[in-house]
Design a protein around this nucleic acid. Structure first.
Lengths: 135, 135
DNA sequence: GTGTTTGCAAACAATTTGCAGAATT
DNA sequence: AATTCTGCAAATTGTTTGCAAACAC
């Protein structure tokens, strides 16, 4: 039913997203793609991000900061959110998917998965704090 | 600096929130409080919810569904989101805060906490599904 | 009385959508 | 040629804010 056609704009979005280790918002993507496609519109960015998500090529991350973030890495992994700089990054850590089993134990419905966000202060901001104390 | 004065509207919001096991959105709260205070405005509801959050009397839950939910229970606990009916409910389960330790292991920053959302189908929707298969 | 809270309406920010033309197959 | 995708602008949604009057202390 859905016939997808190629588009340079979409390619550029995927390319940009794939080379970022952080998880930019639509607006950040828009501003960056504009360097290559000065006439691209925010609408196009949003439409493509939604399409790519449907296709399973990217993942949408809704942490609680009123903007959606987007992730090129669709494999299951956890995220860290810095309460100083609000950055969203991947968190290398052992798999904790067994918590869904823990959750299932006394639950009458069906638990299919979990999304876990860790909060705190990111390495960069820890460094900044240290420096400001030293001085 | 901040001198808080009593307000019947705020009381009503707290009262309403405290007797709900689910976690209503600002709009749901608004519609319900209007039964008692027909002239209350959405702005007042939002202002009070933010104030109550600051005071630590309630908690804001930002699961990814573009609306904020509010929780009278401020103790740490996990939530379940039904992918059928989108309801947000508490999840009685063993404490899993040790996952912050797991996360800290190979992380250079400081991990202060986590928010975990479990996804799946809630008991009510499981029942509905069963019934529709039976018929 | 002073200062906070309210109701109302207008403002906002992030995202979505309608449409005519451009690009892809 | 048929259909999808784009740019633009207007629309929508959830939430915030400015202001004068109402209320709490």
């Amino acid at each position: 039913m859905k016939n997808i056609k190629h588009s340079k704009q979409r390619d550029a979005i995927v390319a940009f997203l794939s080379e970022r280790k952080d998880h930019p918002t639509a607006d950040v993507i828009y501003t960056n793609i504009k360097k290559e496609f000065p006439k691209i519109s925010l609408g196009t960015v949003y439409r493509n991000l939604s399409l790519l998500e449907e296709l399973g090529e990217i993942k949408r991350i809704s942490c609680g900061d009123e903007m959606e973030h987007f992730d090129y890495d669709t494999s299951p992994h956890n995220h860290f959110i810095c309460r100083k700089c609000r950055s969203v990054t991947d968190l290398e850590m052992d798999n904790i998917d067994f918590i869904t089993t823990l959750a299932s134990n006394s639950f009458n419905g069906i638990i299919e998965g979990h999304k876990t966000f860790f909060y705190g202060i990111c390495p960069k901001c820890v460094k900044k704090e240290k420096n400001s104390i030293d001085t």
